[in-house]
């Protein structure tokens, strides 16, 4: 599923690239840094200073402590997210993101995992597998003091699917999560397995989730089918009970990432009908 927290952190006047860089560079006001980091990712900045400044922001992370204003790690999280959008320049930051994947803050690990997936960082496959290796019962258990899981399983699984290294040891780590108690995790695991193996049985799992009673689950399954570009799911996507915006995003994924029947023209006609 897409990063839920990727919307603009505040509304305000449009700013320039120079202004975004300036806000990230200063260290007095972390909410300004937060906005600057978000802006550079959103606008896909190609400025040579963007990646080094984001790397620096990523290294500023510290133990979670929500004091006044923006919590410190919020800047690092946004920096990680922005780096995920800045390939190829951001490949230089892969070692920083791998470090971040070991951070005690699971929210930061989540952002780092997504960025590593977006950057298709093959060197992250081992570390991502390590975080999941203890399986649904440990890595996938709920934290004692919060509804979050011990590991950000959804992001870790999706990253493995996006990177696409279909080795037996990777599949062995992902497969147990197909029976996780949470449907969102099952969806992420099915997506990753579909991307890694192309086996239609995983696509069918996602199609089944399109009929889940919870809207949030139906939406996740839509996004996952789109991410995998699984064209046989086309009809079920068009019929899902949700707003057309998400169906359009999923169908875009089928057009851009999928192959085989139905052909492009049928998919585009379906999209036209949903506008």
């Amino acid at each position: 599923m897409a990063d839920a927290d990727a919307s603009p952190p505040q509304t305000g006047e449009p700013i320039s690239e120079q202004e975004a860089l300036r806000r990230l560079r200063q260290s007095e006001d972390s909410s300004q840094q937060y906005y600057g980091a978000w802006w550079l990712g959103r606008m896909r900045s190609q400025h040579p200073e963007a990646v080094p400044l984001l790397q620096q922001a990523l290294r500023q992370r510290r133990p979670r402590d929500s004091g006044e204003g923006v919590e410190e790690n919020a800047v690092a999280r946004n920096a990680a997210r922005a780096l995920g959008k800045l390939a190829p320049a951001a490949h230089a930051a892969i070692p920083d993101l791998l470090d971040t994947l070991e951070d005690p803050d699971d929210g930061l690990r989540e952002a780092a995992a997504r960025a590593l997936g977006e950057l298709r960082a093959v060197e992250a496959v081992g570390p991502l597998c390590n975080r999941l290796a203890s399986g649904p019962a440990v890595a996938g258990a709920q934290q004692a003091d919060s509804p979050r899981l011990v590991e950000p399983c959804e992001a870790l699984l999706e990253a493995l699917g996006d990177i696409g290294l279909a080795q037996p040891q990777v599949l062995a780590v992902v497969e147990p999560f197909i029976s996780h108690e949470r449907p969102l995790i099952r969806s992420a695991a099915a997506r990753a397995l579909l991307q890694l193996t192309g086996d239609p049985c995983w696509g069918e799992r996602l199609v089944a989730l399109l009929e889940h009673p919870q809207l949030q689950v139906r939406r996740a399954a839509l996004m996952d089918l789109g991410a995998a570009g699984w064209r046989p799911g086309f009809d079920a996507i068009a019929r899902t009970l949700t707003d057309n915006s998400l169906k359009l995003m999923a169908l875009r994924g089928l057009v851009e990432r999928g192959s085989g029947p139905p052909g492009d023209e049928a998919l585009l006609a379906c999209m036209d009908g949903l506008l």
Binding site: R252, V255, E256, D264, E265, L268, M271
Partner: peptide
């Protein structure tokens, strides 16, 4: 301009 828009415009 993402590929899907380009493709629709070519069609």
């Amino acid at each position: 301009t993402p590929p899907v828009v380009q493709q629709r415009a070519r069609l």
